[in-house]
Simulated assay, not measured.
Amino acid sequence: MKIALTGGSGKLGRVAVEYLRASGHEVWNLDRVGERADRGFILTDLTDYGQVIDAIAGVDDRHDGVDAVVHLGALPAPGLAPDAATFRNNMLATHSVFQAARRLGIKRIAYASSETVLGLPFDIDPPYIPVDEEYETRPESTYSLVKHLEEHMARQLCRWDPELSISALRFSNVMVPEDYRRFPQFDSDPRARKWNLWGYIDARDGAQAIEKALLTARPGFEAYIIANADTVMSRSSASLAAEVFPNVRVTKELGEHETMLGIDKARRLLGFDPQFSWRQEA
């Protein structure tokens, strides 16, 4: 496919661009920062709708249109900027990308939603463990509120256009191999990483999920939790849940280190199959 990918200079974006290109796709990185030597980089302010639709439609000798859009560009976490700046940047960027794709007749969109919509940092107990996509979103920050609103916008756009496919990938905390050396430190305090139920996503597996969301795209909106199959901890998942969330119902027998961010839907509908674990790399 020919793919316009926003935020390709970010942590997940860099890996996704490399992965998709290695899989044979043509990928253009729309971002505010990038390497001039990379002919796939197109300097773009994602909050400027005119720039976005122009960059996706075609740029001089770079490309003359795309088959799909991947939207990763955003302020990537709470607390990196004032709330008003986070709301303005992320909401405008996502609207610009979705609207541009719609106007250009592009029917396949995959984008970065976030595990934060599940209720992170879980100061209020989750409704059950493992969490999944079946309960209403619970934004607890401006960042996650925007992710909630983006998902609602995506649903409505798919209602307007029954042929449009938008996949919201609720990525867990993105990690690359050099991050894994500090994972053993997490064992000293089971509550230090309870804020996302001890989850993570290897950027390479995140890139896999992006490609599979595009290849399996079906009309309509779907949200998927994208996390690795294990936790960041050496302790068993069952013991962590029992100690830190004693009043929360555990709906299944948890494997020794099984993720508590339910990925069954992504496995079933996308064919998502995490290949990497910090246990192999640390």
Rank of each mutant, 00 (worst) to 15 (best):
P76T: 06
R21W: 11
A203H: 05
L120H: 03
K2W: 15
T251I: 14
E140R: 08
S188G: 10
I226Q: 05
R182K: 11
V146L: 04
T251G: 05
M1S: 11
I53W: 00
V244R: 02
F276G: 00
E136A: 08
I225M: 09
Q51V: 04
R218A: 08
R62L: 14
G13P: 09
S234Y: 07
V174I: 14
D83L: 06
A209I: 14
L214T: 05
V52K: 01
S23D: 10
V15W: 01
K212W: 13
D123L: 14
A37H: 15
M233K: 13
R108W: 03
H257T: 04
L120G: 05
S236R: 03
T231D: 10
I201A: 13
F186G: 12
Y19S: 06
E253C: 08
A242N: 10
V174P: 02
E134F: 09
R159T: 06
I210K: 00
D61M: 07
I210V: 12
D264T: 11
P127D: 10
R14G: 15
H95A: 14
D179V: 12
K252R: 15
M260A: 11
V131D: 02
G206Q: 05
I106D: 00
C158N: 06
L46S: 01
R267Q: 15
C158Q: 02
I263P: 01
S23W: 07
E256L: 13
H25W: 09
L120M: 10
S188P: 06
S172L: 10
S165T: 04
H152M: 12
M175A: 12
E178G: 07
Q280N: 07
T86H: 01
T142N: 04
I166F: 01
L197F: 10
I129C: 07
I263H: 02
A68T: 01
Y200W: 13
L80G: 10
